[in-house]
Amino acid sequence: MDRLESMSVFARVAEAGSFSAAAKVCGLSPTMVANHVQDLERRLGTKLIQRTTRRQSLTEVGQTFLFDCLDVLARVEAAEDAARERHSSPSGCLRVNATVSFGTNVVTPLIHDYLKLYPDVEVDLRLTDRVVDLTEEGIEAAFRFGDLPDSGLIARPLRPRFRLVCASPDYLAEHDVPLTPADLAQHNCLLFRDGAPRNYWQFSGLPPVRVSGRFVVDNGAALLSAVRDGLGVALLADFEIADDIAAGRLVRLLCDTATPAWPLALVHLADRRMTAKLSRFVEFVLQRLG
């Protein structure tokens, strides 16, 4: 007999309380229901149901086995649903979260291309620099920087990013070009406030370098505007300044001194029943940013 079918019949017997009641639910004869249960008992070498002329009850082994059966059957159903979802056309609203700068510069163009591929999908993109709770806020996928805590989320590693030191040509025309990280002490360094100002800049293989300046801000776009205007030297993400460097609006400094890699991942809930819109989005992001 089919083992999964026998497990399903056994679960129905335990739920219904008798072979005859389970037979009606399963659309089988009471004899066939009994055969399924007996086949399981032969496989396991033990009784699952204690039967008398008046009543039946699960044995201790039967109670434990019932719990495992329900879990296995739920997993099988979830796997079948997921397979059907993957072959179905993605549709519905997908809620995505990213930081303001990364979301503006990288995720938004990415989503434009994703929406062209899947015209039945809508995307609700939430941009914020705080860490959101995916369950509480109904977010299905989020881009996260840094080392991730053990949160129970599924994390798909993406290509790491880097922070680069830069300044405008106008600023450099009036100040000496820094040749080493230590030279930054002589410059007006523009600081990003993340709780406290980030006044220590990290370079690979070197102790943190203390910097200072006359401008502190908690918004990446404002920091980028300030460095473009020639206010000072800034440490910004590669994706924030790539176009400015290519266009000559900014100059990358300390090119021979590397900064540590900035880990990036796409995270989503550990849900067995992944929708088509989410699974396609994960695949799309991995292809483009993995």
Rank of each mutant, 00 (worst) to 15 (best):
A155T: 14
Y114M: 05
F143C: 04
S225E: 12
L179V: 12
I111A: 06
D244C: 14
S29M: 00
D256G: 08
D147Y: 12
P197E: 14
W201L: 05
D2C: 04
P181I: 12
I241M: 07
L286M: 11
T52F: 12
A167E: 04
V165C: 15
V96S: 03
N188P: 02
E240Q: 15
T99Y: 02
K47S: 09
M7S: 00
A98D: 06
R273N: 01
R163N: 15
G138A: 03
T257K: 03
D183K: 09
D81W: 11
R249Y: 10
F192E: 15
C189G: 07
L253R: 13
S18I: 03
I241C: 06
T99A: 01
D176V: 11
A14T: 00
D133R: 00
C189P: 03
R228G: 07
G248D: 13
T64N: 06
P160K: 11
V106H: 09
D39K: 04
V285M: 08
A142T: 02
A276Q: 00
L250W: 10
R84I: 10
D243K: 06
F162R: 15
P263C: 05
P207S: 14
R51W: 07
A83H: 06
S101R: 08
P109F: 05
V96R: 02
T53D: 14
L223T: 02
G248I: 07
L224T: 12
I241Y: 04
L266N: 02
D229I: 03
L164T: 14
F102K: 09
F65Q: 05
E15Y: 03
L44F: 01
L66W: 00
R130H: 01
H112W: 14
